[in-house]
């Protein structure tokens, strides 16, 4: 099977956030006093190969580096060291409604946020009816999105984001959108994408969901891979460790 993603020995280091870190005043202060802002490694010399058509879940406790890893794959973060090779078109779904402007209508936002996902206006024209149908907010599509309930907002954003044709699809904790019936629709849509052979990577704390959807789980702690293997096996070990900690 061909390789879709290859990460080699990557390290991502952040400065510990404090108020006014990135100001001229603080820079002068640190320069004069010779002090340094302390840092922490969100990802620590991590290497990973993901093949085409794999469905992978990433697990780990809060602050383990899961979202950072997803952002590296989405090419949003450039690591401090190591190499990142992405061989396919990546669509990240890290948060719903990115690119949406609250003052614009649902329809206008489809064009605006769609352009960010690389859709030309013609491509949006072709998909718009499908997006509105799937979201189920027909009568509100021309109202400003600031008037939407959080459920309506999430439905429209999810419908738009999953209308793309990715080759690698990254999903970060966004499955629990809308009401129960809409959640089922979302899962069915993602399952369809998986069946089409799209490489899919989930970050989630919902182990049951991951075990049923993924063939492989990667467990991360402190920016390092603790375990990488068959979903059931990794989930079992992870649960066991969590029980020990609690």
């Amino acid at each position: 099977m061909a390789v879709a993603i290859k990460l080699n020995n990557i390290t991502v280091e952040f400065k510990k956030p404090t108020l006014g870190n990135h100001t001229l005043k603080n820079n002068i202060y640190y320069f004069i006093t010779g002090k340094k802002i302390s840092t922490f490694k969100a990802i620590d010399q991590l290497s990973l190969i993901i093949n085409e058509k794999e469905t992978i879940g990433i697990i780990g406790s809060n602050g383990a580096g899961k979202t950072t890893l997803l952002r590296i794959i989405a090419q949003i973060i450039v690591p401090k060291s190591g190499s990142v090779k992405i061989f396919k078109r990546v669509i990240p779904l890290l948060e719903l409604g990115i690119g949406f402007h609250p003052e614009l209508s649902g329809r206008e936002n489809c064009y605006l946020a769609g352009a960010l996902l690389d859709f030309t206006p013609k491509e949006i024209d072709l998909r718009l009816n499908r997006i509105i149908d799937f979201s189920g907010i027909h009568s509100f599509i021309d109202a400003p999105v600031k008037t939407y309930s959080s459920g309506m907002f999430a439905r429209l954003a999810f419908s738009l984001a999953t209308e793309v044709d990715p080759e690698i699809f990254l999903v970060d904790e966004i499955i629990s959108v809308g009401d129960e019936s809409f959640q089922r629709k979302c899962i069915l849509r993602i399952q369809k994408m998986i069946k089409k052979g799209i490489t899919t990577i989930f970050v989630s704390h919902n182990l049951d969901f991951l075990v049923t959807q993924c063939s492989r789980l990667i467990w991360i702690e402190h920016g390092k891979i603790m375990m990488d293997g068959a979903a059931v096996e990794v989930a079992h070990r992870y649960r066991y460790q969590q029980r020990l900690l609690n």
């Binding site: 960010l116 030309t120 491509e123």
Partner: peptide
């Protein structure tokens, strides 16, 4: 890309 040029134009207009 063409889509990104459209994004810039649309953003200015909006």
């Amino acid at each position: 890309t063409k889509a990104h040029r459209y994004f810039i134009w649309l953003h200015i207009k909006n």
